[in-house]
Each structure stands twice: as C-alpha cells, then as structure tokens.
Design a protein around this nucleic acid. Sequence first.
RNA 1: GCGAAUAUGGUGAAGUGGUUAACACGCCAGAUUGUGGCUCUGGUAUGCGUGGGUUCGAUCCCCACUAUUCGCCCCA
Length: 449
Amino acid sequence: MINRQKGCHDIYGLEAKKWQYVMNLIDSVCQKYHYDYIRTPIFEASELYHRGIGEGTDIVTKEMYDFKDKGDRNITLRPEGTAGIVRAYLENKMYGEASQPTKLYYTGTMYRYERPQSGRDRELTQFGVEAIGSNDPMLDAEVISLAVNIYRLVGLKGIKVNLNTLGDKESRGAYRKALVDYLKPHIHEFCEDCQTRLEKNPLRILDCKIDHDNEIMKNVPKITDYLNETSKNHYQEVKKYLDLLDIEYVENPSVVRGLDYYDHTVFEIEADIEGFGSQNVLGGGGRYNGLVRELGGDEIPAVGFAMGLGRLMLAIEKENIELPIEDGVDLFVMYVSETEKEYATTLVQELRMSGFSVETDYMSRSLKAQFKQADRLKSKFLIILNDEDLKENRIQIKNNKTKEEEKVELDYILYYLDEQLATFEEENSECDCDCDCDDCGHEHHHNER
RNA sequence: GCGAAUAUGGUGAAGUGGUUAACACGCCAGAUUGUGGCUCUGGUAUGCGUGGGUUCGAUCCCCACUAUUCGCCCCA
C-alpha cells in the first residue's frame, strides 16, 4: 500500500464541492474586478526564485523542492506564484499590450518542503492577483479590497487586515540602518535567530514572537519616522482609498513579510477565529516595485497578494459557514428486468442530454435497495420503470418529497419533468434562516449564530 | 531542523499479560410475493502501524523505525 506524501491531501466528496464553490466565487469576483486568468507552469528554473524571492529567505534556503532534470537543468517546483507571473509578463511582453496596467489572477498549487501542521502543507493551493504597470496607490487599495471582499462573500466574519509600509529603497535603507544601530548594543539579549537576522534581514526581528515583549522593542525605531516624502505620500494615499472603499485595517508596524521583493505597502489578513490553528495568516501581499527589474525588465511597478485556500477552507469550517452547495441529482431511474434496464439505458442518456442530472443503478440492486440509493443521492424525482407501463408507452414518476406518483406518457416526459422540477425548486427554496433580508433568493447565505 | 501526543475492522471507538477482542455507525438480506426512508431480526469484516526484545505466552511491558496530528521556526 502506497500512501499519500507528507503534507499533501486528497480532496473529494463534500470538501471538493466546497473547493469548487470557492473557486467559482473567485473566478466571478476577479472577472468583476477585471483581472484576467493566467496559468503558468508548476516548475520553473531555480534561478527565478533565487533572484525573485531572495537568496537569504527561508523559502529559498530550506523550503524549495528542487531537482535536476535529465538535461541537467536546475528546476524548482514553484513555492509561490508572483515570480512565475512576472517571468511570464516579461517573456510574453505583456507590457507592450494596449491595456495597462496588466491585471492577472491565478490559482494553483505551490510546493514548500516544510513540517506540516494545521494550516500548513507541503502542497498548498493559492489564489493570487498581480497588477503590473502602475504605481497608483488606488491600485494597492483595490488589491486589498479584492481580497477582503472575497472573504466577505464567503461569509467570513473574523478577519483582520494588518497594514504597514516598508517605504521605497531609500527610506528602507535609512530605516534599516537606524534599526541595526539601535539593536546592535542589545542584540545579545535576543534569541539566536534574531542575532543572525540582524545581519541578514533586520526587519524580520520586528515580527519575532520570542523577542516581541522585550523591553528594548518598546522604543524600537518606527519605519514611519524614516519615510521620505514620496513613501509617506504613497502610504497616506493607500489609506485614503481604503477608507473610501470601506475596508477596515489596523496599522501594524511589525508586518514585514518574508519575501525580499516587497516595498511600500505590505499587508496581511489574519483569521481572528476561535479554535483556529497558530498558522492564522489567511493571505498577504503588497507592492513590489523592484521585482520586474530584478527579473530583467524595466523599472515597472506592481502590486499583488496571495491567499492560501486551504487556510480559507479551515476558516470556513471553524466559523461553521454553510456554503450553498448543490448536491444530489434531479432524477434516479430504477428498473429490475433486463428489458427495463435496456430502456433505462437510453432514457438516462436522453434525460441527461436534456439538461437533467440523472443517476441509475449499476449494482444489480433490488428495487428496495434502489429506493435507498435514490434517497442517499437526494434524488428529487424517481422514475420507476415497469414492463407493463412501457408496453403502454408510459412511465411512472414519483416526487420523492411529496411521495406523489403519476404515470406519464412517454411523449410528455420532458415537458412534465421541466414543470415538476420548477415547482419543486419553488416549493423548497423558502429561506429557513431568520434574517430580515428582503430578497432571500439563496444567492447569499447566513451564518449568524 | 527541533519538541510533544497518537497509532485497534469500511468509519468512530472500548479493552485485556493468557480460551471466540466489546459497542456503535455503515453495508447486505429478511419481515414487506416490484415501492424505500421508521422498526425488528439475522448477516458482514484475512483488525490491534512495522521490526526487534522481555515472557511459557504480548494488541497490552521495553526499544527502534515509520506514519499521522499539534506546536516551534517560517509562511498562505
């Protein structure tokens, strides 16, 4: 017996339906925001990530799935989406297209060699957007609002947006220097990791959980004091547009992000839900004005985010949100004799081609067991074939809710079923939630408790 | 990479150093000679993660390994 690999999952059944629902929601929201779908390869040249994500980052130093292919090329399974998208943007010269900025979205699996735990897998699915070619702060806000609105639309309540800015290169350099100067005399009091961070990536010390409560951290220099005019303005504008968009956020100077390519706006959206695991960041992103150049393009600004869909699913589960999932079938066709079975074969196909979702028996079940199976599948109507009826060119159709049965002439089956299903839907679509909304058409759902 | 917990049938889950390892769900059949969902009756399962050790005897005790889960680190 061969088992699934560590940190990977088989998604099927009800869970798979939930995924499909969320994916569809994402597609429709992105369409409204006018982001175009893009699909890039799951593996890329290793160098892309070394240059794109940053040589010193944890992802690159210890979490990448990389290997040599038969042609001796260094290959890496993508650990994140942005670098590949920017590569595609440059390679396909999207900057030359008439419509700018280039707004793209993707969903797909990413791979990181990590120790799995709640909310963290080796194969993870991310959804993300990238808007390349504009430095407009309104776009920063749009990207954040797109993420927030997706969480809102699935019905999540406990989300919190943490916002910060890293400033441009100049500001960040000045801040970095001030930070190192401030921390250096005390660094021996910090944890081992922070001691190495001081050299490699001092900003990361800000979100260290171990040293967070250290006295010294209370008076640590703030990035906001080191922003130059352009950086300060950009940040102010982003906040202005977020307010206009009615997106709540918390300014949190400890949000620094783990990938090197970020500058200016950075944000993280965390789950504020009881019982959620410690990996509570649902999504994050920001501006990365330096990345396109880093990967060989011109100086082209960009902004984006990514969210982990596995964590989103976890959040949906923890908040007991019931997604409006369609399951079950319209019709179950039952038969016993061989001639009935032959008729069932063609009837089932005809009904399916006419737009109904239809199931039948493949297990040589007794009639009784077929009734059970039909119930399990939540079949709305049952068709019970009978040689006697067939001789008289009619079939028996039973409403599985009211238990009413009717014999219907073969010529009228489609018409009859269309009509019956319509009234069935109507009778069973009454909203049983106790909300006060006017138009409870089940387009939305409610998770008030 | 580090730490902790767990490992019993299709599923959930009791339990014991010693004849046939509970119970529940599920599934199948019958009561109901072609109309189920409730009920009752019966049936079902090559099951104690793998490899060693202690013992007359191990699912139970010890060791190792593996896997899963949770946490650290880091990230989505």
